[in-house]
């Protein structure tokens, strides 16, 4: 199945109800200037998708301004505009490239690391997994199973070990074994916990000592079902961990992950990947066009 097909498959259930309501909206308003009720209903639709009051308000205001064209197309263009407005990543690839995977508890960091390593290996790279979640019970065992599924080596330490030390060891091991990417699975932490966020800062510093410029990428894993708290998460992780991209997980549910639109719009952090299932292949590179098209696909 093509990438677009898979994403659509994952988002289909998500989108069906939403789209038909938008269709009804379009139907009642026709083209030309949408009425106040239509705009209010549109705002509610966006809020229901967890886009947030602020971003929803902005999108609605813009759609209300220029009256040309079909309402649905205008909304699509607006959302795509918000998503496309954020910078792409540098292409320069140092070796080993260190990718830190962070996020609050239960968003799917470990699963994402497993899928990322698998993708990477299929692309002909030689990834290494670093099990730096030494806090949660059995987290190391969980990532070890993923490493085996992905046929990727893992560097691990005992429960309760200092995560920064494991990261240092993993980067050294990657260099010794000639690996070109290190995926670091970190413990889930609430962004409001200053001590745990400080630990991330330490991991960053130690990684930088093990390899110049590391971590080269910091991916924040965000659960698609999260509400406006996602913005708060992204802001804090951006401040202390220097997040470079978002992985939006669990998009195979009914949640639309609209908060990612708000994160992109307010904080300028791009969405890099989307998770659409529990299988090892269920991680796709994010494409703004596909995402918006999939949300608004007519055929469903």
């Amino acid at each position: 199945m093509s990438i677009v097909g898979r994403l659509r498959d994952g988002l289909r259930r998500t989108a069906r109800r939403w789209t038909s309501r938008l269709e009804r909206l379009s139907g009642t308003s026709g083209s030309g200037d949408p009425s106040a009720e239509t705009l209010e209903a549109l705002e509610e639709l966006l809020i229901e998708a967890d886009v947030g009051v602020l971003t929803a308000g902005r999108i609605v205001a813009r759609v209300g301004e220029d009256g040309a064209g079909d309402l649905r197309d205008r909304v699509k263009t607006e959302i795509r505009g918000v998503l496309a407005g954020v910078a792409a990543l540098p292409v320069e690839v140092p070796s080993p490239r260190v990718v830190l995977v962070v996020g609050v508890n239960g968003t799917g960091k470990t699963t994402t690391v497993g899928k990322l390593a698998h993708r990477c290996r299929l692309d002909g790279r030689t990834p290494l997994i670093c099990a730096a979640d030494t806090f949660r019970a059995a987290a190391v065992e969980q990532i070890a199973v993923w490493a085996e599924r992905a046929s990727v080596d893992i560097v691990r330490a005992a429960d309760g070990a200092d995560p920064a030390a494991v990261v240092f060891d993993a980067i050294s091991a990657a260099r010794a074994r000639g690996r070109d990417v290190v995926f670091v699975d970190t413990a889930g932490r609430l962004h409001t916990r200053a001590d745990l966020m400080g630990e991330l800062g330490k991991i960053r510093r130690v990684a930088g000592r093990a390899a110049a410029g590391a971590p080269h990428e910091v991916l924040l894993v965000v659960d698609a079902s999260v509400g406006q708290n996602g913005i708060s998460q992204a802001r804090r992780f951006l401040e202390t961990a220097g997040v470079t991209g978002i992985v939006l997980t669990k998009l195979d549910g009914t949640a639309k992950g609209g908060v990612a639109v708000a994160i992109a719009g307010e904080l300028g952090v791009p969405i890099r990947y989307v998770g659409v299932g529990e299988g090892i292949d269920d991680l796709l590179p994010f494409s703004a066009g596909d995402y918006v098209d999939a949300l608004f696909e007519k055929a469903w």
Binding site: I47, V104, D223, S225, G227, Q228, Q233, T254, K256, V259
Partner: peptide, 12 residues
Amino acid sequence: ADAMTGQDAVRS
């Protein structure tokens, strides 16, 4: 239920 869940909480 995760307290951080958004609008989808009702549906799930």
